[in-house]
Design a protein around this nucleic acid. Structure first.
Length: 774
DNA sequence: TGTCGAGTACTTTTT
DNA sequence: GTACTCGACA
């Protein structure tokens, strides 16, 4: 047996310390591009190879499925390489394709398959499928292992219904969005409805707590959980049941958490429970054969809107570590050497983030050359901005044959910004992919088909049943549905219990009786086969049986054809799922669809320009990055301008964007942008001014001067500042506007300014403290 | 029961 | 400017 673990030799001392860490706590502060994923994967490999840790005893938590998949792939490759040396005395890539495949599949079976590596949501949803039946909440609500996972739109539907119909609240004051947000926040802090009421005893707090409680009732009735429950319920279960906690605590000896700065309170509680077995006294913790290893970078914390709390990372040293100062500590290591970006880019990133107050001091140290200057482009409007970017891409690609389309990324603050870029990419026939926006699983037809499967897997899932009971049309209308739902509510049973009882249907359904009974019989037929036939077969069967695809084909429109193709795509996804997974039950498939995101489809080495939000770009890297829309109010966003904490988060977001670039970085902003159909003037982002000037190659472009109206020409005067029609000015209280008229002259001058939101106002420039802006 | 039109809200970011 | 929702009408 080869015991030389040669893969350790490529590491720098800090990386090596991280990778060789065996037991006890360790915080790895990993700057962007410092080999974080490498540290994680190598450490796992080292645990297994050198310390003989059973993969089953390792829990590795990531924030995206993509990160999890990548990690598993890299570990698999490492092991295959080891095995190649051992069995053939040769490098893996020198073996035949068949031998390589053999080794990989062997590694998969013995190691990768047994690793618990995934997102918080997928791992704990898996744990819940073991243990949720042992849980009851404070009101005695219970769930079973076939639970559905409600997505955001399911949740919205339920909450709307509670607000409008059940509690008859004023939906202006309690709109579903903000109520949903409040409930989610509560859950992410570990609050029950009662806790929430105690925390916010005012009217609004009390009402929201009431909605929250009704919402939990609905979830329980549907045997469903939302995203937040997948974290909160395991936490509660671990708190209330020592045996359950003890089991998982003993199992997961080595816990690794990636992107630790993005954990929220509940996720932290969960990790802490598993590490400490619920024991609060630090002296009682047993580190002999266990560890907690977290990797993160407070400067890349960009999810506080989702209740992520990077102070959790800052507190790791006191929570788990030795709490010693940086020079002496054994429980923290910093990875500061950056292997990704050229020096200019790193310097820009470092200087920008220096403007933040809340952080661990850390600089990215360059290991590559200075590289190209950063280029900043000032565009007339969003169309010209797109024009510049696409032009630049074509030029660069032409001049640098080593670049392919996949080398370019266009990053923006909001999804809505993608459109002008897409239009130009299409017009120039450049291949591209947009990450985010409309997710595959959010499409109507996909949600319909998934709803069939959910109703079969979990008959209590009334939301799904109602979605498909008349899709395609079976002549089951509003009246019938209302009668059935009403009856189930009166009896305190699920809708399915009514539907599946012919006698009840016969009395309630009137003209639609036959349709309802056929529908119920069909669902029932598939339920009976749930354990015996594979997911693909069930999917195929239900698509035919329900007439769903036939209905689409009958419509014959382009849109319908598109939808049929998407349904086919879902079938392919199921097929792939079956090939790649151990657990191929319908429940497992539904879980994977509920927790998958668009980002997961972004394939490595794909030759298309990538368009995505800055949030989606975290963890990725590209030779050439365009960071667009750098305007006050857009990036940093409007809401953060008045709030220092969220302004710092925007700055971190900018930092993330900059550090995605390997060789070239382009920044751009527009002086005017179209938003909701109207043109809005814009001002360059403050972040641009925080970057070192000497690194920026700024383009100076002359713009056509506005044609001056008669009144403007007349109004030239010799005061300190001259005002012209067309000037864009910043008003202390009204913000940015454009001068439309200049009245009078000399000391009696006054100007009319058009503000985008406030309309036109006439002000005295000497009083109003106007400032010209670019 | 289904279709069509007017009216409204929307743009933060995602598992 | 668009996409979605809701109500009136056939």
């Amino acid at each position: 047996m080869t015991t030389t673990i040669d893969f350790l030799s490529h590491l720098n001392p800090s990386q090596r310390q991280a990778v060789e860490h065996y037991c006890g706590p360790l915080l790895v502060v990993a700057g962007a591009g410092s080999g974080k994923t490498r540290a994680l994967t190598y450490r796992i490999a080292n645990l297994i190879l050198k310390h003989r840790v059973d993969p089953e005893n390792i829990l590795a938590v990531t924030f995206t499925n993509k990160a999890a998949r990548e990690m598993k792939e890299r570990i698999q490759k490492l092991f295959a390489e080891q095995l190649a040396m051992k069995e053939y005395g040769q490098r893996l890539d020198l073996l035949t394709e068949y031998q390589q495949m053999q080794l990989r599949s062997q590694v998969y079976k013995t190691t990768i398959k047994n690793l618990w590596c995934g997102t918080f949501h997928s791992l704990f949803s898996r744990i819940l499928r073991f243990d949720i039946e042992k849980y009851a909440d404070e009101k005695g609500r219970k769930w079973n292992r076939n639970f559905s996972i409600f997505d955001e739109s399911d949740v919205q539907t339920v909450i709307k219904d509670i607000v409008n119909k059940q509690l008859n609240l004023d939906d202006k004051k309690f709109d579903a969005r903000s109520v949903r947000y409040a409930i989610s926040n509560a859950k992410n802090q570990g609050f029950s409805p009662q806790d929430l009421e105690r925390e916010q005893p005012n009217y609004r707090g009390r009402v929201i707590s009431q909605v929250y409680s009704c919402y939990q009732d609905r979830l329980a009735e549907n045997n469903a959980l939302d995203f937040d429950d997948l974290i909160l319920i395991p936490t509660r279960l671990f708190q209330q049941n020592e045996q359950v906690l003890g089991y998982w605590h003993r199992k997961f000896c080595h816990i690794l958490v990636d992107e630790y700065q993005d954990t929220n309170r509940t996720q932290y509680d969960l990790i802490r429970l598993l590490v400490t077995n619920g024991e609060d006294r630090k002296s009682e913790w047993e580190w002999r054969n266990r560890s907690v290893f977290v990797v993160g970078d407070a400067d890349q914390s960009i999810y506080s809107f989702r209740m992520a709390d990077f102070t959790i990372l800052l507190e790791f040293q006191n929570d788990f570590g030795d709490g010693l100062p940086d020079e002496d500590t054994r429980s923290m290591v910093k990875l500061e050497e950056n292997y990704r970006s050229c020096e200019n880019i790193l310097q820009a990133a470092n200087e920008l983030i220096e403007n933040n107050t809340q952080r661990i001091d850390k600089v990215l140290k360059p290991t590559r050359g200075a590289g190209e200057q950063i280029y900043c482009h000032k565009a007339d409007n969003e169309l010209e901005e797109a024009d510049f970017v696409i032009n630049q891409i074509q030029t660069l690609k032409h001049q640098n044959p080593e670049l392919d389309w996949g080398s370019f990324a266009i990053l923006y603050r909001t999804n809505a910004q993608s459109r002008p870029f897409e239009e130009l990419l299409v017009r120039n026939q450049i291949p591209y992919t947009v990450v985010g926006g409309m997710k595959f699983y959010d499409r109507k037809e996909i949600k319909d088909v998934i709803a069939y499967l959910r109703a079969i897997a979990n008959p209590s899932d009334t939301v799904s049943l109602l979605r498909v009971i008349n899709t395609p049309r079976r002549g089951i209308g509003r009246t019938t549905i209302d009668a059935l739902v009403n009856a189930s509510q009166q009896l305190g049973t699920t809708l399915w219990e009514i539907l599946s009882d012919e006698t009840s249907v016969n009395t309630l359904a009137g003209r639609a009786t036959k349709g309802v009974n056929n529908f119920a019989a069909m669902i029932n037929r598939w339920q009976e086969q749930i354990a015996t036939i594979p997911v693909t077969e069930m999917l195929q069967g239900i698509l035919e049986d329900s007439g769903y695809v036939q209905d689409l084909m009958n419509q014959g429109t382009d849109e319908a054809t598109d939808r049929v193709q998407n349904v086919q795509e879902l079938y392919n996804a199921a097929l792939q799922f079956q090939e790649e997974n151990e657990d191929v039950t319908l429940q497992a498939f539904l879980q994977s669809t509920a927790l998958s995101s668009d980002l997961d489809n972004l394939k490595e080495g794909q030759t298309a320009v990538s368009l995505m939000t800055l949030h989606s770009s975290k963890g990725l890297e590209f030779p050439v990055v365009f960071l667009v829309g750098l305007e006050q109010g857009l990036f940093p966003g409007y809401r953060s301008l008045s709030d220092p904490a969220s302004l710092e988060e925007e700055r971190r977001l900018c930092y993330v964007g900059i550090t995605r670039a390997q060789e070239r970085l382009y920044l751009s902003f527009a002086r005017e942008r179209r938003l909701y159909g109207s043109r809005e003037p814009a001002m360059r982002s403050q972040f641009l001014d925080e970057l070192p000037e000497e690194l920026l190659a700024q383009q100076r472009k002359s713009y056509q001067t506005y044609t001056k109206s008669a009144s403007a020409t007349r109004g030239q005067q010799q005061t300190k500042q001259n005002w012209h029609v067309g000037d864009r000015v910043l008003h202390k209280t009204f913000g940015i506007g454009e001068i439309t008229h200049v009245f009078g002259e000399g000391n009696k001058v006054s100007v009319a300014i058009k503000f985008s939101s406030l309309g036109q106002k006439i002000v005295d420039p000497r009083v109003a403290q106007l400032q010209k802006v670019d």
